[in-house]
Amino acid sequence: MADGDTRLAELRELVAEVLEVEPEELTDTGDFQEEYEADSLRAIEMLARIEKKYKIEIPQQELANMQNLKAVYAVTAGYAGWSES
């Protein structure tokens, strides 16, 4: 579980930087587009940083399933093979 918390915090920081907000302003379920003015370029940038950080590849089509922090974590966990524990 501690592992999951650390990774969520890492992702929060990463996404916050791309969306130009403070990590604590980024809620788990706030919609990137609606609440943080994200656009497609920001979304691709976020994906690129996740891929680089965890050395994984996530197809661009997955962006449709990565509209908030919780969803980003779920998709990333799936591709990185992070266990659910």
């Binding site: 791309v18 370029l41 920001r42 691709i44 940038e45 690129a48 891929e51 680089k52």
Partner: peptide, 9 residues
């Protein structure tokens, strides 16, 4: 091609 997308503009 792992360039930084947000910097392309």
């Amino acid at each position: 091609y792992m360039v930084n997308p947000a910097l392309f503009p």
